[in-house]
Each structure stands twice: as structure tokens, then as C-alpha cells.
Computed example of a mutant assay.
Amino acid sequence: MASIQDIATLAGVSKATVSRILNQDPSFSVSDVTRNRVWQIANQLHYKLANVANRNHQDKLHLAIVTALTAQEELTDPYFQEILAGINEQATLWGMKIADSIRLPANNDVDWQNLAVYGAVIIVGMLSNDVLATIYQYNKNVVIIDDNRIFDNYDVIQNDFGRQTKRLLDLLFAKGHRQITFIGGEKKLVGEQKIKKSELLDVRHQAYLDWMTLHQLEAYKDTHITNWTSEDAMQVTKKILQRAKRPTAIFASNDLQAIGIYRVIQEMAYKIPDDIAVVSFDGIEMSEYLYPSLTTVRPATKEMGKEAINLAREKLVGDRESAIQLTINSKLIIRDSI
């Protein structure tokens, strides 16, 4: 019996295009030449429209991922690796399949209409508002992971880094620290074919500024925004420690930055935490084996990925219409660096 894949191969189009034509999707824009060719081949192969109806449930269990991550981030960043692992693990549990993946920015135009055939679209990272609106135009079941903006129409899963930032700062304050330097990374908005710097501050950066103001420490505010790597943090830390007045504590936005900070502090013969305390985020395995061991916040990143699938499934099998904003709690690990 002929399949949609057989028709797509002979017609020179995607399976999604064939499915939407045979389902007579009124929102699908395609040339009359392509539409007629698909129908002609389907008739020649004696394809039965009942086959399309039988696929409806299966297509709903197929999901698409749109990611703002680079290939390197997917391969090397533990934070995003765990999110993706959670997505795949939970999708398998519920019999769902990641059927398509789109990485932005793209080198060519993206055929967004194809997203209409999937049960839901999972977004990882911060996409520009125009791209989000385009995705929503073709698929109303949108779940966004790792974006702290507030939306009316999209489900959002975020971490609790703002709250955990204040907890770390409270710990430092209780130990007498007032000159606390913040090292963070740039937030970027990813569009269809370009990346631009976000005007929004990272939630840790904003929480640091708010906390310093609340504790009347404006005079000690000291922020340095760079890339998220150890190498970039090393360069920034060298400049910080060459100043006449050095901080008594450094707040790193991730453990990779903290590793670079450790190296510079120790190369300059300072001691952690006696001279400079260090705190961080991510809770990667290496953080436990630094000397002294690093105080860090471990996000439940795999759970974030799993909950994205759960929210997608909830919208598919239930009747929920309102968007949900879900915060996943992290774990504060107090070690010897403070």
C-alpha cells in the first residue's frame, strides 16, 4: 500500500507538504502545480484518504523542536545537554517522537507552515517576538524552555535563578561580604536569520542589582558582562584583581566562568575563600572537585525538559486553553568556596 513518504518522494516535496495537501488544510499555501502533482501521484498509487485519517493521532504525537542553541552549545554545554536529554526521555515515555528540529538562525528561509502538522512545538532558548508569532500562527501548542519573559499565549518553563541569586548573596552578606563583584554573560535574542543582543538583563544580573540596592550597597555595585566561557571570565578577573580595591567576593553566572575565576585568583596568589569568596550556578560535576569545592546552584534542567513534554501532552489530550508559566526549583549546594 502506498504511503505518504512514497508520494513525497515521487512529487519531490516533504511528507508534511503531502499530508497537508491530502488533508485539504485551508491554511496551507502552496502552488496549484504542486498541489495538482501531489493529488495526481496519490491517485496513480491508489492512495486512500482514509490513510490520512488513520494518521491523525500519530501526527499529534509527533513534535518539533525549534532551538536557539548553536551546535557547539548542544554538544558542550551541560545545562542545555540536560534539557535536551529530559525532552527526549519524557517523549519516549509517552510514546511521542521528536520528528523535526529547526536550528536558528537559519542559513535559508524556514518553511514555518510545516509546523502545523505536529502536535506541539518545543522551543529551547530565547527567540525574537516575530519568530514566536510566526510559529504560533501555524501551531497553537507552543512550549518555551529557558526564557524568563512573560507571554500571554505560550507555555513557559523557567528556572528560579532570580530567587537563588538572592540566596547566594544573602549567604555572602552573612559572612561579612559587601564588595561583591558580578560576572555574567550576554543574553541574545535569536531571529530567523540573525542574532541580536537582548535589551533584557539576565535574571541573575537583574537580581544582583536589585539585591545590592535593597541592601544599600549601590556604591559597591560592580558588574562585568562577557561571554559564558572560562577563558572570557579569566580575562575579566585579571582586570578586576589588578585594581587598587579588589572585591571580597565574586559572583559567577555559571560554573565555566567560575573555573576561569578560580585559576586567576590562584595564579595571583590569593586564597579562596580567605581572600576572595566565589559562588556560581550550574552544579556541573567538576565544581565538586575544584579546590576548594565550589558553592553553586544546580538547576533541575532535565526536569525542565521533561515538563515541556508534559505540558505539550496536556494540551494535546486535554482541553486547557490558558497558557502556563512553570518555575522549576534549583538546588543550592553550599561548599568550601565561601
Score class of each variant (00 low, 15 high):
Q24G: 06
L311M: 11
V13Q: 06
P78V: 05
A133R: 11
I338D: 08
A16T: 09
A207H: 07
G125P: 04
I144Y: 01
S3Q: 00
K221E: 15
N107V: 10
N129K: 14
T295Q: 06
Q5V: 09
L84P: 13
A219F: 04
V278Q: 02
G185A: 04
Q257P: 06
R320S: 14
V317C: 11
I276C: 01
G260Q: 07
S128Q: 09
Q179S: 02
F182P: 01
Q266G: 09
E218R: 14
W94Y: 15
I157F: 06
H205N: 03
D160H: 00
T296G: 03
V18Q: 02
D111I: 13
L45H: 05
Q113P: 01
D111Q: 11
Y138M: 06
Q242R: 12
E307V: 13
V33E: 15
K97E: 08
N43M: 03
T223N: 14
I135C: 06
D202W: 15
L104W: 09
I240D: 11
H177G: 09
Q216H: 15
M234H: 11
P292T: 07
T237Y: 04
L311K: 11
G12D: 02
H215N: 07
M286Q: 13
S19R: 01
S29F: 05
Y262T: 08
I261F: 01
H177P: 02
K140Q: 15
S293K: 12
V121W: 11
A16D: 12
H224E: 05
N153Q: 08
S287W: 08
P26W: 06
V110P: 09
R335A: 02
K306H: 07
A2C: 04
Q113N: 09
D160Y: 00
S230K: 13
H224R: 04
N129M: 05
S280V: 04
L168T: 06
I83S: 10
E267C: 05
Y136C: 13
L256V: 14
T237M: 04
S253C: 12
H224D: 13
I250C: 01
G125E: 00
N51A: 13
S31L: 00
Q58D: 03
K15T: 14
L214P: 02
E288V: 01
L49W: 09
Y154Q: 13
D222F: 08
T295L: 08
K48C: 12
P105W: 03
T296N: 02
F173G: 00
V18N: 00
A300W: 11
Q113Y: 04
D282V: 03
T223A: 02
E285F: 10
L49H: 07
D282L: 01
D222W: 14
I276R: 02
D32T: 13
V18W: 06
A258S: 02
L10D: 00
T70S: 14
N88E: 05
I328E: 11
N141P: 05
L201D: 15
E82N: 12
D336E: 13
V142F: 03
A219L: 10
N88F: 04
D222H: 12
L189C: 07
L214Y: 14
R167Q: 07
I195V: 11
A85N: 01
Q266F: 10
Q113I: 10
D202S: 12
L171E: 10
D109N: 08
Y47I: 00
K315T: 08
N107H: 05
I225H: 11
S29V: 13
R246S: 09
G318M: 02
G260T: 10
H205P: 07
I123G: 01
D282G: 12
Q206R: 05
Y118R: 03
S29H: 09
V203M: 05
E74Q: 09
V52E: 00
A91F: 07
